[in-house]
């Protein structure tokens, strides 16, 4: 993250990431979050966060108004993930997207062995309570980026706190992070 960058954090929760980026990278941050309690906590930290629905309210943000748009652990809760990605790259020149990998071996094993929707450490909620309606795998995300013509500028994958090489990410990583650029 460049020093002093303009950043929009979509689904910023209580602003933990934005506050860190402000305090350690001097970023000029803004956020949007759907949950009122979390917004109130973020604003009380002095962050510019508006209560809103990313599926609907991103359209109001002007084009090219930030350097980097972040979508952290939120993609899978969007009604229209592809449209949200396009919006991120309209508002910002770059997008950083992090999401839980549904291709992780634990997920596959749970479904294969038990025939039940998986509840894993990174996706703990049961199928009927989860906010996550559009889960995807690392391979799914790469395919979507290709279909949308988005450029993958970088990627990083984690299993716990250990890095996983991209080639093995689809089955070994529990979390994935992509840096996207415009077509």
């Amino acid at each position: 993250m460049p020093e002093g960058a303009r950043v929009l954090d979509v689904g910023c929760s209580d602003g933990t990431l934005l506050a860190w980026l402000r305090d350690h990278r001097g970023v000029d941050g803004r956020g949007i979050e759907i949950d009122a309690e979390r917004v109130a906590r973020a604003v009380a930290r002095g962050l510019s966060v508006v209560q809103g629905d990313a599926d609907r309210d991103l359209a109001e943000f002007p084009s090219d108004s930030v350097d980097v748009a972040i979508l952290s652990e939120t993609l899978q809760a969007m009604h229209r993930p592809a449209r949200v990605l396009r919006e991120l790259l309209r508002i910002g020149a770059r997008a950083v997207v992090a999401f839980p990998n549904f291709g992780h071996w634990r997920v596959r094993l749970a479904l294969l062995a038990r025939g039940r929707m998986p509840a894993t450490p990174s996706l703990p909620a049961s199928w009927h309570e989860t906010e996550n309606i559009h889960l995807c795998t690392v391979a799914d995300f790469r395919a979507l980026a290709r279909e949308e013509g988005l450029r993958i500028l970088g990627e990083a994958h984690l299993a716990g706190w250990r890095r996983v090489p991209p080639a093995q990410a689809n089955w070994r990583a529990d979390h994935a992070l992509f840096v996207l650029g415009r077509p």
Partner: peptide, 8 residues
Amino acid sequence: HTSFVELQ
């Protein structure tokens, strides 16, 4: 720069 929240 805008902050907005609906309070209960």
